[in-house]
Design a protein around this nucleic acid. Structure first.
Lengths: 338, 338
DNA sequence: CTGTTAGCGCTTTCAC
DNA sequence: GTGAAAGCGCTAACAG
């Protein structure tokens, strides 16, 4: 089967003009049915496809979405990417994936690179460094140029764009309440992501609940040196008589379970654990972790839906007002809680 | 800062012709230094970048690589993607990522879609279904059209292209020998991927070693119903007096560890476990899994290197001969082996 | 040293 | 009903 035929070649072979062929392929009513049929037949024969580059150049649309992810080895973002890819494909969009590796500079570079006619819009989860530095000029720039951006999970208040987030604060309240309701009194809240927006929200939620109950002890363990997390958590569990842990991120949750096993603490009889995780740990840990599921695929999918909707809305000039969508979390009880 | 300036606008503002501006930006020696400087200055001022679409249309190169992955939720492929992305970015290439979800039809569709002027070449790990059906016409097609393809990990003998694979057969030999050398006599080889090329190779390697030793019992447990894997492995461990497990894939490895824990079998005292895994499990399992590391990032990176090298070689017409690169595995001993 | 021209593949307006 | 022509932004052969 011959491939990569152009309009020009079809036109020549049919002894028609390029524009007639072009119109025929679009079933333009001003072309005779007979011609339309002839053109379609030959086009099918050659398996003709318009050159997307030429179409893009002409239309100023690439049908491509730029996806900026902080870390693809983090299962949460892998799942989100999965959701994005599904939705994009369904709607006829391609995605170009860039991994910022939690670096501000890489993020800026990618935004720069892709914003020059490479993509129609962006789906972004901010890098850790970007959130720390709180520098978001690069996004303000492209938004000013009318390139739509949708942020998810790791978002910035200061960027005027659509957002898809999880009700993190509410989620940790729910989790903590569950622990309290199942008679846990000495609760630790462990986090290795206290500098991320989501980490802060989860901590806030936890604090709020603690403030509302009497007789509940709660210790915050905030770790900002990932390499030492294992040691820190082990020491912490040794020295403190706690009966429940709420882990605000995947790493903390997994280490907690492992260290409890190592120290011979029975889960959930002596120690209840709930973690913010995405399912992988719950599947592969022993005992199976009870999780606050963030439904990463949903987040990704909703982000893509929002972006594409925005990209395809017929330029009505009414002022665009960004919206923030909140995707619900679910507490999934497995074996690490009573 | 104004953005998306075109050559035309620069030319107008400088009262030069478009081509002079274009040449100046390339520091063409036939342009006077003075003009070159003027052009550069204004270009910098406007932060000029050539429109990649136009460049691509002209040059027939997109500087984009199509990456086809069976499953991004599988940590192995996430790692490979990471390696690919790093290398591609380093060399000035973008990647468009497509997830086939182990489906043959999706794979064909993506190849079709991207091969029309969307990418310069492909990096592919075949979907499970494709390997099962052994239908690889879609790749033969594009290779005939001189679109380079590099396959990694899940490859097909029948496609005439560069490949990057792991020495899977050798790897399982090494692993099994280690188990035997540490005095294991009743060994189980567990796999949930016996229909994949890599699964077959690993099994072959294991069988070879078993044949070479006397007095070593080995039982193969081949599971092709993922949903029942947990139940099957649990039953198997209950009913059989084995002292070692070689798990040919991540899932099998993780379930084995969990079930051994559940059944109270001491690891590694009573049961040694080695698994083909990529590091995530070894990090998050308890006890830490001893692994045959496939160095997924390396695989991805090498695949990208090979492809880009091929893309950039100056059309020497000498016949192209595909090469297969073998990336070494490493046995990393953690806590699940003696 | 600089400019004109043609062309990559396509869409779209305007003639005929 | 059909076709010529312009143009998206860029490159490059060729003139001057």
């Amino acid at each position: 089967m011959k491939r990569k035929v152009t309009l020009k070649q079809l036109a020549k072979e049919l002894s028609l003009s390029i524009s007639t062929v072009s119109k025929s392929l679009k079933n333009d009513p001003e072309i005779s049915q007979k011609t339309i049929d002839r053109v379609h037949e030959l086009a099918n024969f050659y398996n003709y496809r318009p050159n997307p580059l030429a179409v893009s150049l002409k239309s100023n649309k690439t049908k491509t979405i730029g996806v900026l992810l902080p870390d693809i080895l983090n299962h949460f973002f892998a799942k989100a990417l999965f959701g994005i890819e599904q939705e994009a494909t369904k709607k006829g969009y391609k995605i170009v994936t860039c991994i910022t590796n939690e670096s501000y500079n890489k993020e800026v570079e990618y935004v720069e690179m892709l914003s020059y006619n490479s993509v129609d819009g962006f789906i972004v989860a901010l890098s850790q460094e970007t959130q720390k530095l709180d520098k978001i000029e690069h996004f303000k720039e492209i938004i000013k140029d009318d390139i739509p951006v949708v942020m998810f999970d790791r978002v910035s208040e200061e960027v005027y764009c659509d957002k898809v987030i999880v009700d993190d604060k509410q989620a940790s309240q729910t989790a903590l309440k569950y622990l309290i309701d199942t008679n846990c009194k000495n609760i630790a809240v462990i986090s290795t992501i206290s500098d991320l927006s989501v980490g802060k929200l989860r901590l806030e939620g936890a604090k709020k609940v603690i403030g509302e109950y009497d007789g509940i002890e709660a210790i915050e363990v905030l770790i900002d040196t990932p390499d030492e997390a294992e040691r820190i958590i082990e020491n912490f569990l040794k020295k403190n008589e706690i009966d429940a842990v709420l882990s605000l991120d995947e790493t903390a949750a997994s280490i907690t379970i492992n260290m409890a096993n190592k120290l011979g603490r029975k889960i959930p009889e002596e120690l209840s654990v709930i973690g913010f995780a995405d399912g992988l740990l719950s599947k592969y840990s022993y005992p199976k972790l009870s999780i606050m599921s963030q439904h990463a695929e949903n987040l990704g999918q909703r982000a893509a839906e929002n972006l594409i909707e925005r990209l395809e809305q017929t330029n009505n000039k009414e002022k665009y007002i960004p919206k923030t969508e909140i995707v619900k979390t679910t507490l999934i009880l497995r074996d690490s809680t009573k």
